[in-house]
Amino acid sequence: MTSLTDIYHRALDGTPLTFAEAMALWNDAPLAELMAAADAVRRRLHPEERVTWQIDRNVNITNVCVSGCKFCSFHCRLADRERAYVTSMEEYRRKIREMLALGGEQLLLQGGLHPRLDLAWYEELFSALKSEFPNVKLHALGPPEIAHIARISGFGSDAEGYRTVLERLVTAGLDSLPGAGAEILDNEIRRRISPGKCSADTWLEVMRVAHRMGLCTSATMMYGHVERPEHRILHLLKIRDLQSLKSDSAPGFLSFIAWPYQGRGTALEEETGLSGGAETAEFLRMIAVSRLVLHNIPNIQASWLTTGLAAGQMALHGGANDMGSIMIEENVVSATGFEGRTTIDAERMQEAIRAAGFTPALRNQRYELL
Rank of each mutant, 00 (worst) to 15 (best):
M1F: 09
T2Q: 11
L4E: 05
T18I: 03
T18Y: 06
M23Q: 10
A38R: 07
L45D: 12
R57I: 14
N63L: 11
V64T: 11
C69P: 04
L78I: 12
T87F: 00
Y92P: 01
L100F: 09
G103L: 03
E105L: 01
L119F: 03
L119T: 00
K130Y: 10
N135R: 15
A140R: 07
E145R: 13
A147N: 07
G156V: 00
E160S: 02
R163A: 06
E183V: 09
I189D: 02
I189N: 01
R190V: 02
P195Q: 02
T202W: 14
E205C: 06
V206G: 09
V209L: 08
V209N: 06
H211I: 07
G214D: 07
G224V: 00
S244D: 00
S244L: 12
S249N: 00
I257C: 06
I257E: 07
G263T: 04
T266K: 06
A278H: 00
E279P: 04
M286K: 08
A288N: 09
V289L: 13
V293L: 12
N299P: 10
A302V: 04
L305S: 10
A310K: 15
A311G: 15
M314S: 15
A315L: 05
D322I: 03
M323P: 08
G324K: 06
N331W: 01
V332W: 04
E339M: 14
T343C: 13
I344D: 11
D345V: 15
D345L: 09
A355E: 03
N364T: 04
N364R: 01
